[in-house]
């Protein structure tokens, strides 16, 4: 069978579908000071999943606010800098108007994912940390 670390090189999704892959990628991102990109990506997925399990509205609102505050509000943050202004305004509007939708972070997540696919992921595959692991 194909070893997991070779699968990680197939696509970002294969990497993010494996616990060890996530761990190694996060260690790499931490070195580059951009682990928030990955945390935000998972936070968006987790937020969307909440809708499926009959979770209370208060928790959803609290979580949406927490994600907004930690990753988007500060324009100098690594995540915030990679998200388009229109996308940020959309999320801000949702939070301010208490219009909490399971898909409210989808566009922002896509933008961060594209950035990782084009930038941090290929760099990771060439990094010492990955090569040493393999």
């Amino acid at each position: 069978p194909t070893p997991p670390y070779l699968k990680w090189a197939e696509s970002l999704h294969s990497l993010l579908d494996d616990q060890d892959g996530i761990h190694l990628f996060r260690t790499f991102l931490k070195q580059e000071d951009c682990a928030d990109l990955l945390d935000f990506w998972f936070a968006c997925s987790g937020f969307r999943k909440l809708e499926a399990n009959e979770c209370n509205e208060e928790k959803k609102l609290k979580l949406a606010k927490a994600i907004y505050k930690k990753y988007i509000l500060d324009n100098n943050g690594i995540v915030s800098r990679q998200i388009k202004p229109a996308t940020k305004s959309f999320i801000k509007d949702c939070v301010m108007k208490l219009h909490i939708d399971p898909a409210m972070f989808d566009q922002a997540q896509t933008e961060i994912q594209t950035m990782m696919e084009e930038n941090t992921y290929p760099v990771f595959l060439k990094s010492d940390i990955y090569l040493e692991y393999t």
Partner: peptide, 20 residues
């Protein structure tokens, strides 16, 4: 503040794949 961080961490963990 702590509970907000906990909530966020719980959300991040919930989205990660489980050990195979």
């Amino acid at each position: 503040i702590d509970s907000e961080d906990d909530l966020l961490q719980e959300c991040i963990t919930s989205a990660m794949p489980k050990k195979k």
